[in-house]
Computed example of a mutant assay.
Amino acid sequence: MNDTQVTLVGCVATRIDYKDTVNGPSARFRFAVTPRYFDKRAEAWTDGTTSFYTVWARRSLAVNLAGSVSVGEPLVVHGRLRVREDPPDGEGKRWISAEIDATAIGHDLNRGTAAFRRVVKTDTPLMATQKASVV
């Protein structure tokens, strides 16, 4: 209920790391977000500081992501923001990381075109058994 929902626009920075786990498919990648602003003094558009996020996708989103996205492609990512602080390492440095549990991911159509293909879901073995016993 109180999750922070964010929508980010950026580019895929690493390859998609896809795994089948006991809880279902899972995928992750690093996402680079660079704000642009108009510098009035230079009278030109300028890039700001790039922020990197780890994006996590689960279940069917993970499967579709792994089959659709490559490094360098522009995306729009929507999901829950999680900020983690790791304990200090041996040198006393603390790490803070920002992760997104994605609920939706799509190509940024301001920067290119995409061809959408709907995924046809098949019956699960349990449903197929139930249908066969009904007949």
Rank of each mutant, 00 (worst) to 15 (best):
A44K: 14
F38I: 03
R59Y: 12
V12D: 11
E85I: 02
R36S: 05
N110Y: 09
P88Y: 09
V22F: 10
K93P: 03
A102H: 01
S68Y: 07
V55K: 13
T122Q: 13
F38D: 10
A115N: 09
A104T: 06
D20R: 05
S68D: 06
V9W: 06
V69H: 03
A128Q: 15
A128W: 09
M127D: 04
A62V: 09
A42P: 00
I96C: 10
V120L: 09
S97Q: 13
R111V: 05
N2I: 05
T14E: 14
Y37E: 01
S133L: 14
A132Y: 08
T103C: 03
V71F: 01
G67S: 14
F116R: 07
V76C: 03
L81E: 05
A62Y: 02
S60M: 05
A42N: 02
H78D: 15
R80E: 01
R117V: 14
V77K: 02
L65W: 01
V9Y: 13
N64L: 03
T4N: 10
R58N: 12
L81P: 10
V83F: 03
V83G: 07
V63P: 00
S68V: 02
D108V: 00
G106P: 01
V77T: 07
A62G: 08
D101K: 04
T54N: 01
A62T: 03
V22H: 07
N110S: 08
R111W: 12
V134W: 13
E43D: 14
L109E: 06
R30Q: 15
T122C: 08
R28P: 02
M127W: 00
T124L: 14
R117W: 02
H107I: 07
R59L: 15
E91K: 11
P125K: 06
G67K: 12
R82I: 11
R94V: 14
V22T: 12
K93D: 11
R41P: 04
A104K: 07
A104H: 10
H78G: 13
G79P: 00
A102P: 02
P35H: 12
V33L: 11
A115L: 14
K131H: 10
T124Y: 08
D101F: 11
V71P: 01
D123W: 13
F31E: 05
V9M: 05
P25V: 03
A128S: 07
R118S: 12
R30H: 06
F38P: 12
